[in-house]
């Protein structure tokens, strides 16, 4: 059988192939990526679109969670301060209800209670990142306006926000001011005003009733700690989940389009060997001819 006398096309094809392999291996080593364009691996490229979207969202959820955590912790510390203010009011109220306390003393205590009321309202007007913490969803400079003597008006609404910290996880970050401070089952502002008024009027029985109203307000506010505590727990858990998820996503990305250095280096060495073998073979076979021997 006659064989093809022209080796050039085969040799050329071999050289081109090994050069292409060498280039690919070199690209893998230099970029650290196996997939650079969709054509390299369509399925992996498509999966990377999802991976990118998820990791972007993951980063944002992490930021949201840390910002929400700050907000919830601030709100929680406000409740702690309010409880301690109310505790002071209760002891002042108890003093005011005593039969040994004079009318003048009661007036003084009333002024102190009004001072406490002012402090509580200023706590209730705390804002976080420029927005009031306890005005529901209304963008107002302060949640409560007014004065200890004229009374306070709530400027917010009864809505509350939840912050998105996962694709389907939202955590409650606020409780509206009217629920916290003027709630029927423990009216903080109302009971303090009532106490101040009773002290002013000198009614011992009134002072007693008002003091126990302040006490029930303490119980109510303490119970609301649970709402924020729960949110703090959720946010902490979610933060650690998100950081775990970030690692998972990034290792998924490496699996999809990356190449590990050892494999890349090995591929490169192999491609180099292959290329020099092809070139050596070409140098060997191309010049041979019968004419060399016909002398």
């Amino acid at each position: 059988m006659r064989v093809s006398p022209n080796l050039e096309p085969d040799v050329l094809a071999g050289m081109q192939q090994s050069q292409a392999d060498l280039q690919k291996a070199l690209q893998e080593v230099s970029t650290g990526q196996r997939v650079n364009v969709p054509g390299d691996d369509p399925a992996a490229s498509a999966a990377m679109v999802q991976n990118l979207a998820e990791s972007n969202n993951n980063d944002q959820y992490t930021e949201n969670a840390s910002s929400a955590l700050g907000q919830v912790q601030t709100a929680d510390s406000v409740l702690t301060s309010v409880v301690s203010l109310l505790t002071q009011a209760v002891s002042l109220g108890t003093e005011g209800a005593s039969s040994t306390t004079t009318a003048a003393d009661r007036q003084t205590i009333a002024t102190q209670i009004q001072g406490i009321l002012g402090s509580v309202v200023s706590e209730a007007n705390t804002s976080y990142a420029g927005a009031p913490l306890f005005a529901g969803t209304v963008d107002t400079p302060t949640a409560f306006t007014g004065s200890p003597t004229s009374g306070y008006t709530y400027q917010g609404n009864s809505e509350s926000n939840q912050v998105q910290v996962g694709d389907s996880l939202q955590v409650q970050v606020s409780v509206p001011g009217n629920v916290l401070f003027t709630n029927a089952s423990g009216n903080v502002l109302g009971s303090l005003s009532q106490l101040a008024a009773a002290l002013n009027s000198g009614s011992v029985a009134g002072v007693g009733t008002a003091t126990s109203a302040v006490t029930s307000a303490i119980h109510f506010i303490s119970s609301q700690h649970a709402v924020f505590g729960n949110s703090i727990n959720q946010l902490n858990t979610q933060e650690s989940f998100l950081s775990q998820e970030k690692i998972t996503l990034s290792s998924e990305a490496t699996n999809l389009i990356g190449v590990d250095t050892a494999t890349a280096a090995e591929n490169l060495a192999q491609a180099e060997n292959q290329n020099s073998a092809v070139l050596a073979a070409a140098a060997k076979v191309l010049p041979t001819s019968l004419l060399d021997y016909l002398k």
Partner: peptide, 28 residues
């Protein structure tokens, strides 16, 4: 259609995550 930026996919993702940032700060 390739790369982690400058594609419809990456811009979609950036848009949605910047929307999600409003969650903690709706009036910013």
């Amino acid at each position: 259609f390739s790369g982690t930026s400058g594609t419809i996919g990456s811009d979609l993702s950036t848009f949605f995550s910047s929307l999600s940032a409003l969650s903690a700060n709706p009036s910013s």
